[in-house]
Amino acid sequence: MLNKSINATVALLFFAVVALAVVGTSWAVVDELPQNVDDQSNIEAIGVLVFTQFVIPFEVLSIVLLGALIGAIYIAKGEVEQ
């Protein structure tokens, strides 16, 4: 029980520090967003970006995922049955 209360205190300390930092900072952001009222979706824009500007990271990521997949199967498979 003592342990849990220590943990909770630490978590609250962390929350307090970060939340104070967030509230205390003046964030320079674009106030008026050019929004299209008819179409609020941004999927199209993301799709275009993924296949133009970010195509190299995207392809690399596919290889990483493939590697992780093979690794996961290999680890989880266990002993090979004869």
Partner: peptide
């Protein structure tokens, strides 16, 4: 108003999937 952050999020979700797969394995 910069789309690249959202693309990053997609990537990081995909990486999280890889990490979770390995973790569970």
């Amino acid at each position: 108003n910069d789309m690249s952050g959202q693309v990053f999020t997609l990537f990081s979700i995909a990486l999280a999937a890889a990490e979770a797969a390995i973790g569970f394995a």
